[in-house]
Design a binder for these strands. Structure first.
Lengths: 106, 106
DNA sequence: TAGATAATTAGCTAATCATCTAATTGTTGT
DNA sequence: ACAACAATTAGATGATTAGCTAATTATCTA
């Protein structure tokens, strides 16, 4: 869980996740959105991978990254729980609630 | 907002926030919960202060820190919004919702 | 097979960070 | 005024981090 927070602490990495929210992208495509060098981006990808926030799929000579939304959600859930913040995750087809010692129904 | 995430990226600081969730505490009292030196804790407090996550009240020779729940909530809201995660904050007397481009009522 | 392309790894540097001890500031009580 | 106490600031150190260029690996295609 610490790795997730560490990964999220960098603005570049947060923006990578944001980009991946829309659709999976290759490493090069992602790198094109930033001014830093490709090897630097590669390092950012590695941090995100190790935190489990993204997964890499190799197709031929390109590597496509996609967001692991569940890991992001779990981190958010865990964090909210610790701070007693009611959270409802809209996973697309259902809601899951977490947090709040006294569950106030809405 | 970057300062908030940076502040949250350290486990010690996250635990400080957790402790302050229950009740305000003095710097010394907080430091008592950790094995690191008081100056180190003081530095952690400064990071949390600069992120706006805690506020300091000086009473005589002691300084009492308290959690700025609203800042924490706003950070969580902003983050959730960016990732399209529906969030409901239980602020004690009302709920506030954020996130989700398509608002599914529950 | 050679050249081009996508991405990573290697190796380095400058900056930031968590930590420590020692010194300083400000407040209280005798 | 002075000693004790709470906390911070000063200054130093070792570790981590974000960034770069150059080199490497793996794949595709002419």
């Amino acid at each position: 869980m610490n790795k997730v927070f560490k990964a999220l602490s960098d603005p570049t990495r947060r923006r990578v996740l944001q980009l991946l929210r829309q659709r999976p992208m290759t490493a090069g495509e992602l790198a094109g959105h930033f001014t830093v060098s490709k090897p630097t981006m590669s390092a950012h990808f590695a941090v995100l991978r190790e935190a489990g926030l993204v997964s890499a799929d190799k197709q031929g000579k390109t590597i496509t990254y996609h967001l692991n939304m569940s890991v992001l959600e779990e981190a958010l859930m865990g964090f909210a729980q610790v701070f007693g913040v009611e959270i409802k995750l809209d996973t697309g087809d259902s809601f899951v609630a977490a947090g709040g010692t006294t569950t106030k129904d809405v």
